[in-house]
Amino acid sequence: FRDYLMKLLAAQKQYDWDHQPIALSATSLRKGDSADAIKAIKERLYVYGDYAANDTTPYYDTAFEAAVKRFQKRYGLTPDGVIGKTMLSELNDSIGKRIKQIRINMERVRWMPKIEDSVYILVNIPEYRLHIFEHKKLVKDIRVIVGTTANSTVIFSGRLKYIVFSPYWNVPSSIVQKELLPAMQRDPNYLARNSMEVYGGTASLPMIRQKPGGSNSLGLVKFLFPNNYNIYLHDTPNRGLFNATNRSFSHGCIRVGEPAWLAQYLLRNNTAWDSTSIHNAMHQTQEKWVTLQATIPVFIGYFTAWVDQDGKLNFRKDIYGHDKKMEAKLFYR
């Protein structure tokens, strides 16, 4: 972080981009195009380290396309090499904003609990990714879906202890009140059509759960790290949502893109489990709880800037507005 911060502080003194926004004369730019805007974009990608050549020609060639894709990947954009409105918006953000973003996230790193376990899981909310580390080395990246702005995923840490195959979904009372009761009034067969049942509560506020199966909102497996927020990792039947670039769709829990792989990884040292037994357990009519032989720390974090395993500086959108709140405390006291 510190090296990148020093580079951007130096660039801020040299370049006055705040008053020179780049505009496109076309809807987008791609390889083979020529435009005056390409000269300015090349300069910025050179300063940011994505473009090796200090080239200010207006031509979009193969080397420039590779630089564009590197930039897009670092910012969580689709790395298709096409320069459009979204990429241009990131390029037009001031160097000063990026400097503040780095400083804010350096502060967040200071707040992280000390990691003493050899294996741990980190979910980075703005990145929409779950990372598994062993001995500080990245083992696997998995796409996740996090809470919406209105139902934001909580930042905290816990220890993953249980895997529940073919789970029931015990619908939170808030969802019962806001969504299910109105739906039941409109359609008396709503519960049956959605494989749901009442298992307690009162007539005015029933306790409702969804039965195990392919249509269950938790999918075929969930991963529990007991906490006060009722947040956990789980599968989902809506697989297509993982293809979205921005994946804040849930009520607060974290949907996992590769749940079967995660289950097999967590049970890798348990000889009673393999890919076949896991698949079978995920397709039962009754839920099955498995206690891990050793708990694994899970950190739910919120980093909009970080240096990855390849030494590249990444940035993401402040999807919950946490950066703005920290900025007010750090820079405007």
Rank of each mutant, 00 (worst) to 15 (best):
D274S: 04
S215R: 14
Q309H: 09
L266D: 04
S217R: 07
V307A: 03
W261Q: 06
D308M: 13
I300P: 04
I254L: 03
A244K: 12
F249Y: 15
K317L: 12
N314T: 04
R255D: 01
R239Y: 06
D308Y: 06
R247K: 13
L224T: 10
H251R: 10
A294Y: 11
K329F: 09
Q264G: 10
D318L: 02
K324T: 10
D235W: 02
V256N: 01
S250M: 00
A281G: 02
R247V: 09
V290E: 13
G252Y: 06
R316L: 06
N230K: 09
S277H: 08
Y229V: 07
L220A: 07
G301E: 15
H279W: 08
Y232L: 09
N269L: 11
I319M: 09
D318R: 01
R255L: 00
L292Q: 09
Y265M: 08
L241H: 09
K329G: 00
T291M: 13
D274W: 04
F225E: 00
N246M: 12
V307H: 02
G257R: 00
N314A: 07
A328N: 12
K317Q: 15
N243E: 13
W261T: 02
D235E: 04
D308A: 11
L313G: 00
V256E: 02
Y229I: 11
S250T: 12
L220R: 15
I254Q: 05
N314W: 08
N243R: 14
D310H: 13
F249D: 08
V256R: 03
N238T: 14
D235Y: 05
G240N: 14
R255P: 00
L313D: 06
L241P: 00
Y229C: 11
G252D: 00
D235L: 01
L266C: 08
L262M: 10
F315V: 05
T295V: 10
T304L: 08
I278A: 03
T285I: 10
H283A: 10
N227F: 13
I319T: 03
W273P: 08
Y302L: 00
A260E: 08
T285C: 04
C253V: 05
L224Y: 08
N238H: 12
K329S: 14
Q264N: 15
K325E: 13
W289T: 14
R255V: 01
D308W: 05
I278V: 15
K329H: 11
Y302C: 01
E327F: 06
V256A: 06
C253G: 04
K324I: 12
N216W: 03
F223M: 10
F303Y: 15
N280T: 13
L330E: 14
S248R: 07
S217P: 01
A281D: 04
Q309N: 12
D323E: 13
F315K: 02
Q264P: 04
V221H: 03
N269M: 09
K288G: 03
T304D: 03
L292C: 11
P297A: 11
T291C: 11
P259R: 02
T285S: 14
S250R: 03
C253T: 06
F315A: 08
D323H: 04
S275V: 13
H283C: 05
W306Q: 08
N228L: 11
A272P: 07
T271A: 14
D310Q: 13
C253L: 00
T271E: 15
G240C: 05
E258W: 01
G219D: 04
Q309G: 00
M326A: 08
N280E: 14
F299W: 10
Q309R: 11
